[in-house]
Design a binder for these strands. Sequence first.
DNA 1: GAGGGTATCTGAACAATATTCAGATTATGG
DNA 2: CCATAATCTGAATATTGTTCAGATACCCTC
Lengths: 212, 212
Amino acid sequence: MSLTKVAPRSRAKAKEGYHHGDLETALLVHAKKLISQNGVENLSLRQVAAKVGVSPSAAYHHFPDKDALLRAAAKSAFEDMAEFQVASQQNFKGTSALAARKRFRALGISYVGFAQTNPHLFRLSFGPYCGGDEMARGESRPWQLLVASLDQLMAAGEIHPKIRPHAEVLVWSAIHGAATLILDELLPEAALESILDAIEISLKSSGKVGNK
Amino acid sequence: MSLTKVAPRSRAKAKEGYHHGDLETALLVHAKKLISQNGVENLSLRQVAAKVGVSPSAAYHHFPDKDALLRAAAKSAFEDMAEFQVASQQNFKGTSALAARKRFRALGISYVGFAQTNPHLFRLSFGPYCGGDEMARGESRPWQLLVASLDQLMAAGEIHPKIRPHAEVLVWSAIHGAATLILDELLPEAALESILDAIEISLKSSGKVGNK
DNA sequence: GAGGGTATCTGAACAATATTCAGATTATGG
DNA sequence: CCATAATCTGAATATTGTTCAGATACCCTC
């Protein structure tokens, strides 16, 4: 299932011959490539097989059906986003509160940036083909990145202790919602900055509001 | 395009005979019914036509292609959600700050509640078949409901004037993100309450946080 | 290093699908 | 009342997911 899996006999690069070498990852790579161009709803197994240069039925020796391939592609795309996010944070180092806040914002901006750069892959990662159990909360890279960033923000005194336990869900919800609504053209791209501001405010405040 | 469109010769109820009477809405209704059962990705035009009791090609006299039917269904489902939300607010009347806040929370809870009750329809409303221009921000019912609720909250003194302009995008993003992440089982259902609390805090505070 | 077993790939087949089109049927307007 | 337009049918086509028998290459054992 791993993308870096080594083919038997280490022939991962053999593109000629009856046996492909590493069809599983080749199918995944080309599936993602085609999806990022045309969207999941317009992807066919036969297209992927043709791109890889293999018979349509060959795929069934590596994935039980099309849905399994799509689920694997969704999981892979999810990790692509994590890489994209990691790269965006390299520019802001240090332990100061300002650096922590800049990294935090970069994390959110890169989340939405990935969605805008690869809309079809972003939509693939969530929705019907979302891994569910496998990439459950706590296990996924994006979630770990978020936890780490919030820990740094907390250490820098930018989060009120009382709401720290609820910080992850709030931030992820707001950023994810912004990303999808911007993709659907229901919100303008500029909305992201307002949302990030509001999140920072909410994180810093005490966590109690008027009587219910 | 309207759901309540009256058929020519007012024969909307005629189910017998060569002509159907109001095929367009019948297709929409049954499409939504099938989608809510099996999801968009498992819907076929022929299924819908069969349910309605009509030939597959008949649909092409009312929708240019399958995508057009799905887009119309998405738009219709979006308005279904608005109805669901309106119903949820009937229990909390009055102009007090407490009533306004209860209505506000009911609006968010019903948004997520609709997503959980009709996951397939909720996913249909957004994503690839989202109306885009037609149901652009400002025009859609859910957006209008949100604006109205925030106006009431503002009048009750529960929103700081400085962040009132950014309130809609923040709230919609956070609630929409929560709904989709809960659907994907990436967040627990209980996260919604934390998010609503955090939103209320953010709305009431002044809108400025430490130096950048 | 030779041979058998196994994993992998092909090619043909099948049912279901979206879409088109000629023709049949009904409604509508003059 | 009749002609024209709107609506529906039925058949046809190309593409799809999936299965399966058979061909091919790899790997392990002897």
